[in-house]
Design a protein around this nucleic acid. Sequence first.
RNA 1: GGCCCUAUCGUCUAACGGUUAGGACAUCGCCUUUUCAAGGCGGUAAUCAGAGUUCGAUUCUCUGUAGGGUCACCA
Length: 481
Amino acid sequence: MDNKVVTRFAPSPTGFMHVGGIRTALYAYLWAKKNNGTFILRIEDTDKEREVEGSIDHIIESLKWLNINWDEGPNIGGSHEPYLQSQRLDLYKKYAQILIDKGLAYPDPYTEEEVDSFRTKAESEKRPFLFRDHRPASTGVSLGGPENFEKWDGSKPLRFKVPEIKSYHWNDLVYGDLSAGPEALDDFILIKSDGYPTYNFAHIVDDIEMGVTHVMRGQEFISSTPKFLSIYEALDIKPPLYATLPPIMGKDGKKKLGKRDGAKDVLEYRNEGYLPGAMINFMALLGWNPGDDREIFTMEELIKVFDISRIGHSGAQWNDEKLDWMNKEHIKKLSLEDMKEEIFKYLPEELKSEKIISIVRERVSKWSDINDMLEKGELDFFYKEPEYEKEKLIYKNSSLEKVSENISKAIFELEKINEKDFTTDNVKNVLMQIANSLESRGELLHPIRYALSGLDKSPDPFVIADILGKNETLSRLQKAV
RNA sequence: GGCCCUAUCGUCUAACGGUUAGGACAUCGCCUUUUCAAGGCGGUAAUCAGAGUUCGAUUCUCUGUAGGGUCACCA
């Protein structure tokens, strides 16, 4: 009836979400939103062995943090409830029955050990293992009718009987024409002996039932696509459009990013103080680009410009440095009010001042960098008189006498500023006037900065003076004379 | 091993037969009122190799090489 775009993200609850999975979710989300379509979250919990307690909540928390919001799914429901595959078992049985009735599904007569021995044998003979070579004979074929396999009582796995062994060619929205040889096709398991469907079967049933039009997925699924297509054919249903995403590689650039080789839980990035908008921005650009030189995007902007046709084909390596830069760019766009809460989370009580924010905001690429600043004592000057060796006040080849002389001049002039006019700009004007009359400006500015901060690296003296206020500034300068 | 995918600066990428091969991160240098940060300017740096096709290949074809993926009662 309508051509509404429906995409889905279908993670399995086997642990945390890493950036690879999130990026798939993001692209599916962007595509749905761009087309005023529907984005569905579906939990593929059909492997009770691998399921990790609490994963679903963790996945939901991750997506929510990043503002990837689903239109249908756990927590909010929708017209295709339920959204946990473990609660949809009847549906898979229904579809399995259709295949059985067509003579396209049969119970696997072997034990797991027997199948394993087939596999081992094939491997030792250096040929691919195909279950269909061991397909049991049907008990009789009625003329023109379906084959009669052993009746399936649910105690054995139910296998799909590939209707036709052939090569498949299909079009992928990202990669274009893809193909796979007949060896990619096999009698795979539809329903396991524990009654749960396999991914290969369940995701197809659900995509059909939920009206999914575009499937975003990793390229690890390319080689099993013929299996999917053969099921759609057997069911006589048109498959969705596939958009296969290039892999994200780990930091070494070698291996596809995965939990085994150190892929991080995305929530760790939250804990390190990255902005969700920056994470989204960075992940969007990992494997996709807008076609021009723009790099900084908000989610809304991404929705506007995102296009499947500009998704790349080759693997991209995760790059923390660029992420840091991008996060900093997003921080710059934050209003004081927006960042106040975040920054205050990291600051001890005595530093919770708006004046500190202005110093911090320009010096960190992510909020947890504030911890480093605190550790290095870079903010101590704010509430603590600095301790330093007098010699440190000397600028280059100057002398302590010169330091005293210059600071005294500064004190004399600064005294003239009203307390309430003791701002960065006014202090700067006064000090620059003196400094410019000197042989080198550092003769004045360095000792003052050092006397106020006690640090080799710090903000400039005008800002510090402003923050400290007239009294404290002058008092610290007096001590340096 | 079979099948499949991929290949441009260190990294992310642009250039859909004709460009001094562009941008960004990182790096280096200079400037910007002392140091840091921010900012500005500039530099170094790439078409995996070899054959074709073509007047002309980063771009098309083939081969090689390298990397990745996949061959589960995992997704």
